[in-house]
Design a protein around this nucleic acid. Sequence first.
DNA 1: GCTTGCCTTGACACCGGCGGCAACGTTTAG
DNA 2: CTAAACGTTGCCGCCGGTGTCAAGGCAAGC
Lengths: 128, 128
Amino acid sequence: MRIGELAQRAGTSTRTLRYYEQHGLIRSRRATNGYRAFDEAELRVVHEIRSLLAVGFDLDDIRPFVACLRAGHATGDVCPDSVAVLRRKLAEVDTCLDRLNTVRDQLHHQLTEAIAHRERTCLRRTAP
Amino acid sequence: MRIGELAQRAGTSTRTLRYYEQHGLIRSRRATNGYRAFDEAELRVVHEIRSLLAVGFDLDDIRPFVACLRAGHATGDVCPDSVAVLRRKLAEVDTCLDRLNTVRDQLHHQLTEAIAHRERTCLRRTAP
DNA sequence: GCTTGCCTTGACACCGGCGGCAACGTTTAG
DNA sequence: CTAAACGTTGCCGCCGGTGTCAAGGCAAGC
């Protein structure tokens, strides 16, 4: 399979696939003309990459999952390294959620205060 | 007040202050030697900028708050434009929270599944 | 006069996952 | 033969707030 076909089947661009290859996430042989030749299995790998990216992982995070797939596992998440990344990411997300909740409350408070202040200080132009 | 003093008092760098000025967030006169001269009031403005940046606003979001302060209000958030930004940001944060919660649940699920799969398929090396 | 420390503008670097273009080679259909 | 459609590598741009350096102009103490 050449790069264009893989891109189309994976729903991404050739540019993106070259980028993944350059960063060691997907592999190809080279045909005599220099064109990349991809195995069917790479389609699976690209799908794994895409879905993890969509969740907010970066390419480094994804590497263990790809390795897990290459090791023959049915899914990329059952290997120890992948599990470790999952744990770490979950913790990161939790931290992020905490911060964001704090910010949310802060914004909410600031907003209601500001509106209250407006109602105290100036008569509302819009009818009550 | 010159730029170094303002930077020190605001707890930031001269580079940052020049950047803010360049983007119209803070103002200065020029002394005869070309040095920037800042009013005391700018310190307040810089603090407003920094605290809003810390919450996740970008410089464009912050502009109305600065204008509000300059208009003589005690806080930067009581003017209509600021309130509008607050509303928008609150909505953005809520959206982000939703997405992040979804991701969190997804990660949690994937993690527990992966661990369960490991326990099914291989004997645990670590003693029970 | 010389050093030290402040100030000036301008410009490059960063981070990450690409998009997009240039300049060129290959294959295929007409 | 030629045009179209594919492939190749390489490099710039983006986004945003800063760090950092260069090359120079001032201020002030010795």
